[in-house]
Design a protein around this nucleic acid. Structure first.
Length: 289
DNA sequence: TCCTATGATTAGAG
DNA sequence: CTCTAATCATAGGA
């Protein structure tokens, strides 16, 4: 019942899924625990014991992963917005996995019952030739059930793995990287180059930028983080862009100034220096602020 | 198909 | 938590 190989063949996805350190922590820890425990170990049991916590957790995960309400898609930070097609595909595959899981589970349950009755029959037969205590019967049944539940556990485990591979395939934000819209980049760049001397938008500024660009605040943060470091690393490469945006903001600033009928400000918003942007303490020695 | 740009994620510092 | 720096993985162009 290798659901994993059956439904999702991509070696790449597998590799990705096994690349544990970039999984979402919750899933990751679950998987790790599964692996550890199935590799038989008792380890730091901070868990409750009687109703097999492991199975519970797996159950919970499977439930959470594919309950009737749409599974929460957010991999993490990025609030993806355009995933309707892919998402339905994801859901379809998820349903498929769950279906396989349930049919398999049923099979196992059935097999377990059959086997139990079979053993019971054997015992009954034997009881004619030798005395068999209820205790012994109980013991046998216990053994059988333990065996089967370990199989069940494996089933759940591989289902979880399959689900996780699925997730990593469809929901991993990195894989779904889309460039921001032209306007969004425009807005971000405008802000960046007009605050070159201190390109660290406040939380409010980030929120506003996020709104204007229809992206999330953390995407704005990512963008500025990337931009700062990349700008710093290769200022030359960004010269042209810098000039462009400096000119742009200069124009808008000029308009604003004209409207305000004030000439006091003309040199503060943008003071073209070697082609349009402030010399900035930010870039001079690679140190920021 | 290779190369660069770019958004996201990570570890680690503060 | 935010930030940097490195890195990953994809998008998009030549």
């Amino acid at each position: 019942m290798t659901i994993t190989d059956q439904s999702l063949d991509e070696a790449q996805a597998k590799k990705h899924a096994l690349n544990c350190h970039r999984m979402k922590p919750a899933l990751f820890s679950v998987l790790c625990e599964i692996k550890e425990k199935t590799g038989l170990s008792i380890r730091g049991a901070q868990e409750e014991d009687p109703p097999d916590p492991q199975l519970m957790r797996l159950d919970n995960m499977l439930l959470a992963e594919g309950g009737p309400p749409p599974p929460p898609p957010p991999p993490a930070s990025a609030g993806s917005s355009d995933n309707s097609i892919e998402h339905s595909d994801y859901r379809a595959k998820l349903t498929q996995i769950r279906q396989i899981y349930h049919t398999e589970l049923e099979k196992y349950e059935q097999a377990c019952n059959e086997f139990t009755t079979h053993v019971m029959n054997l015992l009954r037969e034997q009881s004619r030739t030798r005395p068999i205590s209820p205790k012994e019967i109980e013991r046998m049944v216990g053994i059988i059930h333990r065996k089967f539940s370990s199989i069940q556990m494996q089933l759940k485990q591989s289902t979880c793995e399959a689900v996780m591979i699925l997730r990593s395939r469809f929901l991993d934000a990195r894989r779904k990287r889309r460039n921001f819209s032209k306007q969004a980049t425009e807005i971000l760049n405008e802000y960046f180059y007009s605050h070159l001397s201190n390109p660290y938008p406040s939380e409010e500024a980030k929120e506003e930028l996020a709104k204007k660009c229809s992206i999330t605040v953390s995407q704005v943060s990512n963008w500025f983080g990337n931009k700062r470091i990349r700008y710093k690393k290769n200022i030359g490469k960004f010269q042209e862009e810098a000039n462009l945006y400096a000119a742009k903001t200069a124009v808008t600033a000029a308009h604003a100034v004209a409207a305000a009928v004030q000439n006091n400000q003309t040199n503060s918003p943008t003071t073209p220096n070697s082609g349009g942007y402030p010399a900035s303490c930010y870039q001079s020695d690679g140190r920021i602020q």
